[in-house]
Simulated scan of single mutants.
Amino acid sequence: MTEIPAPARVAVAGGGRMGAGIAQVFATLGSEVVIAETGDQAAARARVATGLHRADERGKLIGSTPDEILERISTVAAPSDLPGDVDLVVEAVPENPGLKIEVLAAIDKTVRADAVIASNTSSLSITELGTALGDPSRFLGMHFFNPVPASALVEIVTAPATADAVVDKAVAWVALLGKTEVVINDSPGFATSRLGVCLGLEAIRMLEEGVADADAIDRAMELGYRHPMGPLRSTDLVGLDVRLAIAEHLAATLGPRFEPPRLLREKVARGELGRKSGQGFFAWTAPGL
């Protein structure tokens, strides 16, 4: 089998926390990275810079300084402004199917025909999102985890139309990033979101019913089952709004066992979204960018 090199040029559509993390890891690998951000481009770049300096403080950058890596990253105002000569585009906009399809359609018209296009969706159907593309054989899911630089896993999600060669490239690129892949067939919630949301929703119901406080529930899973992080703190890190959207999607596709608890809906309505807002099931003294 021919060795697959790192992508020379990568585009990321969306400069939020996930998009910035994806941009950071590919720039650290040595790729030139272009971020398409329709909002505040300076804020997207600042997120990458913050992540690089944190990685440097932990001794994770070898042979390059944060500023040298940041020089490989540029921004544009829209997916239609991306350069055509990229090897990989990762769509990382919010978990809204209409928005994702709109962005993917713009990407499809902009980049060259042999570029791999991936979605960072955590639960939406890759088959359905692929209808936005003229050639869905070059499309798959690359579900990164938060925080991207520190996470060990990338969930690669394949649709029936996805070409084997595209899967091979994605697997090789994940390995070059120093991460491990799991390859999953397209299904609502894939493997990780389906299992993670199931555990998280039950933990929220337990809190709602007064079974125990948030810290006790999380410590039970951390110490009893060796989970590195409890389900409620994990929900704070993911974002309560994100978890609610995934739960609603899974309830619609897989049934009422994924119906979101009242407490989750109430917290999202109050703006208690987790780490990014400073308050979720726990208080965060330094809200995430």
Rank of each mutant, 00 (worst) to 15 (best):
A77W: 03
A118V: 10
A92F: 02
P287R: 08
A269Y: 07
E202G: 03
R54N: 12
P94G: 11
D56P: 00
L52Q: 04
E181K: 15
W173P: 01
A106T: 07
R45A: 12
T50Q: 15
V183A: 05
G196D: 05
I217E: 05
T180L: 13
D114Q: 09
M18H: 00
T121P: 09
V48Q: 10
R58M: 09
P287F: 06
V89G: 09
L82I: 08
R17L: 15
E181H: 14
S137I: 07
L289D: 09
N185E: 14
A214F: 02
G274N: 05
K109S: 12
L133V: 06
K109L: 13
I184M: 03
V268H: 12
A150D: 11
V12H: 09
Y225P: 00
D56Y: 02
L140Q: 03
A220T: 10
V90K: 11
I246A: 03
K169V: 05
S64F: 00
E102D: 15
L199M: 14
S64C: 04
K267Q: 15
D67L: 10
W284S: 03
L29P: 00
D164V: 12
L133M: 11
P261M: 13
L82H: 04
R233S: 09
A286H: 08
G134N: 11
A203D: 01
E71H: 14
G239L: 09
V183E: 04
G280V: 07
R275C: 07
T180F: 08
L140M: 10
R233C: 04
D40P: 06
A220N: 06
P79E: 15
P228Y: 08
S193D: 05
R194N: 01
F281Q: 03
A27P: 00
T110S: 11
V174K: 13
V48A: 13
E3Q: 13
G239S: 06
G84S: 14
H53L: 13
V238R: 07
A286I: 07
A20K: 06
G224N: 03
F26Y: 13
C198A: 15
N146C: 09
L140P: 00
P188M: 04
D168Y: 04
R265T: 09
E32H: 10
E155W: 03
R233I: 01
A105L: 12
A220E: 01
R262F: 00
Q279G: 00
S151L: 12
V111L: 14
K267W: 05
S234M: 15
R265W: 04
R138G: 00
V182C: 10
G98N: 11
A23T: 02
D236V: 01
G196H: 05
D241A: 12
A163W: 01
K179E: 08
A172H: 04
L264Y: 01
V12K: 09
A78L: 09
E248A: 06
V238S: 11
P256S: 15
L195R: 12
L61M: 07
A247C: 04
S277M: 07
I246N: 02
P7Q: 14
A46W: 07
P5F: 14
F26N: 11
M142E: 10
F190V: 02
K100R: 12
V157W: 00
P147W: 06
G14E: 08
D108L: 14
P287D: 06
E37T: 09
A252T: 00
S187K: 13
R265F: 04
F258M: 04
I156E: 01
G84H: 11
